[in-house]
Structures are given as C-alpha cells and as structure tokens.
C-alpha cells in the first residue's frame, strides 16, 4: 500500500518536473532552450528579425548553398507520385471585374495557370482601349498584384478544382467616363480620345473637374473597403483642398 502511494507521487512528480538532464549527462532540449532564451534576454538587440542587407550595395560571390544531399529530389509529376501540384488543374476560369469607373466584366474561360498579371492587364487595356497598362491595377483578395505574378502564384495553396471560377478585381486609375462614351459614339474620334486619356489635362484643370474627385473617391472606397470611412477621408481631403 505504502509503496503504491509512493509510486503515484513519483510518477506525478516526474510528469510535472521532467528531468533537465538526459542519462548521458546532456541537457534536454527543453531545458537548454529555456536557459538559452533567458541568456538572450540580457543581451541588447543588434539586428531586427526582419533585417536585410541592401541588395543594391552588398556584392556577394554568388549565393551560398549547402553541399548536395544523398536523397535526390523527386518531382512528383514525372515520377507519378501523389503531389499537390499534379492534382491541380493547369487552367481555371477567370473573371476580370471592375465595379465602377468603368464597369467591366471580362470572362476568360480556361485560363492557363502560367498567365501573368501583366497578361491580364493587357487584356483589360485592350478592352477599354487604353494604351499601355500603367493605369490598370489587378487585385486579388483586394490586394494589388505585381506584374510578374502568375495566376498560379496568386492562387497559391488554395485547392483548385477543374472548371473552378476565380475573380480578379480590376481598377483603372484616372479613367474618364466621358472619354469612353465618346469613343463608343464615334470611331473616328477614337484616336483623338485615346490621346486625351493618355495625356489629359493637368494641374488646376484636373482639380477643378469633377472626374478627379470621383476617381479619388472610388480609389478610397476600394482601398479602405468601408464606404463610411472612405467618405470621411474623402470629405476632409476635398474640404481641405477647397478651403486652402
């Protein structure tokens, strides 16, 4: 009876107080880490955890890589192993959508996953008859995407099924409704209108017109994603400017 009681106590103790040292005299990982972290605390921080040397200044003798591994890397697609990438389809349906200024909805069925954001921008630009893609922004999950990103990178780890539909947001900066209307009205004026889109008025002329403010408001709403807050910001912007 006595010994049983003793054993229970001992087993509770060893559960709540795991040994700091292994039988071979080495510290356990847990206790070493604890000791180490507490000695870290007493030292000043010299480099932030997100420190990076400026790659424009630092010249290296090539990247450092570790020596080869004994295990060859098997790419699943070639060896027939199961792999996430292999299960993914190579093309999905994409819709490019802009909710305002101009309203736009381009559907691109079975788009290759290698399609880049720049490709999408070019599609949009040619659809709204813009020269160049500088003014076109493509958003995925409400965040602007860089030109070099491919559809595959955008979608990332999300599981995809064949025939799935994804939507990319589109914004056209400084787009003017009036111009687009004229372009549609007469094709002869088309070229002239395009130059106005590309160059447009500048300085006071822009700030005096309603289009600029409408664009700004549109941008704020899209960026802040809160109509009320965006209106607040917009009103204070415009109020300040007009009272200057």
């Amino acid at each position: 009876m006595q010994s049983e009681h003793h054993e229970t106590l001992f087993s509770i103790f060893s559960r709540t107080h795991p040994p700091d040292y292994l039988p071979n005299g080495r510290m356990t990982e847990l206790s070493f880490a604890k000791t180490f972290l507490s000695s870290l605390d007493s030292r000043p921080l010299k480099l932030q955890p997100d420190y990076t040397a400026n790659p424009k200044i630092v010249e290296l003798n090539g990247p450092y890589t570790l020596p080869k591994m004994p295990t060859p890397f098997k790419r699943a697609t070639s060896s027939g192993l199961l792999d996430e990438a292999a299960q993914k389809p190579s093309a999905i349906n994409v819709t490019l959508k802009s909710s305002r200024n101009p309203v736009l909805s381009l559907s691109l069925p079975s788009t290759d996953l290698g399609t880049t954001v720049l490709d999408f921008k070019q599609k949009v630009a040619s659809d709204v008859k813009l020269e160049g893609t500088e003014k076109v922004r493509v958003l995925y999950n409400k965040k602007p995407a860089g030109d070099l990103k491919t559809l595959k990178e955008l979608v990332g780890d999300e599981s995809l099924e064949a025939g799935q539909e994804i939507e990319l947001g589109v914004m056209i900066m400084g787009y003017r409704d009036a111009d687009a209307a004229k372009t549609e009205d007469s094709t002869t004026k088309g070229t002239k209108c395009e130059t106005t889109v590309a160059q447009g008025p500048s300085g006071e002329e822009v700030l005096g017109g309603e289009e600029f403010w409408a664009d700004l408001k549109g941008f704020l709403v899209q960026r802040i994603r809160d109509e009320k807050k965006a209106k607040e910001v917009f009103d204070s912007f415009r109020g300040c400017w007009e009272q200057r």
Partner: peptide, 19 residues
C-alpha cells in the same frame, strides 16, 4: 532540409527571409 533555406539567407545577410 530547413538549413538549406536558412543558411543561404543568413549568409546573404537576409535575416527576414531566413526567419
């Protein structure tokens, strides 16, 4: 395998990517 990513970044003074 983790070291194959961590060391190259540390050796290019890229702490952010190493982490």
């Amino acid at each position: 395998y983790a070291a194959r990513a961590v060391f190259p970044y540390l050796l290019t003074s890229n702490l952010r990517s190493a982490n």
